[in-house]
Simulated scan of single mutants.
Amino acid sequence: MQITKTEFRKYDKGGNIKGFCRVVFDDCFAIETRLIQGKNGVFVAFPDHRNKEGKYSQQAYPTTKEIRSAIIDAVLKAYKEA
């Protein structure tokens, strides 16, 4: 699976969220990530969902270090170019 497109949208309404990035794989599957300013710099947050008990669970996430690194690198590159 290859990353074929990234679309970054800045979020200028304050808070820790820097923006949202759609990452497209093989021109046929996409996930929406968030870029968040943390204490130690920015990080990529993958899609999650809060259940009835208020706990979060991830909805989509990379299963290998290689694809995680590729996604993070693509999102950070799109952020810097935006």
Rank of each mutant, 00 (worst) to 15 (best):
M1I: 04
M1P: 04
Q2F: 09
Q2V: 09
Q2T: 10
I3F: 04
I3G: 05
T4S: 06
K5H: 12
K5R: 15
T6W: 06
E7T: 13
D12T: 11
D12S: 09
D12A: 10
K13F: 07
K13H: 09
G14R: 06
G15M: 08
N16P: 02
N16F: 08
K18A: 08
K18P: 01
K18R: 15
K18T: 03
V24P: 00
V24L: 01
F25Q: 11
D27F: 11
C28Q: 15
F29D: 12
A30D: 09
I31P: 08
E32L: 11
E32S: 10
T33S: 11
L35F: 11
I36L: 14
Q37C: 03
G38F: 11
G38S: 12
K39H: 11
N40F: 12
G41Y: 09
G41V: 10
V42Q: 10
V42Y: 10
V42L: 12
F43A: 11
F43W: 15
V44F: 10
F46Q: 05
F46I: 11
F46N: 06
P47M: 13
D48L: 14
H49E: 11
H49F: 14
H49M: 12
R50Y: 05
R50G: 00
E53F: 00
E53P: 00
G54T: 02
G54H: 02
G54K: 03
Y56W: 08
Q58V: 15
Q59D: 12
A60F: 14
A60S: 14
Y61W: 13
P62C: 06
P62L: 04
T64H: 06
T64Q: 08
T64P: 07
R68Y: 07
S69Y: 07
I71E: 02
I71L: 07
I71P: 01
D73N: 09
D73W: 00
D73M: 03
A74C: 05
V75R: 01
V75N: 04
V75Q: 02
L76E: 04
A78F: 05
Y79I: 01
Y79R: 01
K80P: 00
E81L: 06
A82L: 02
A82T: 04
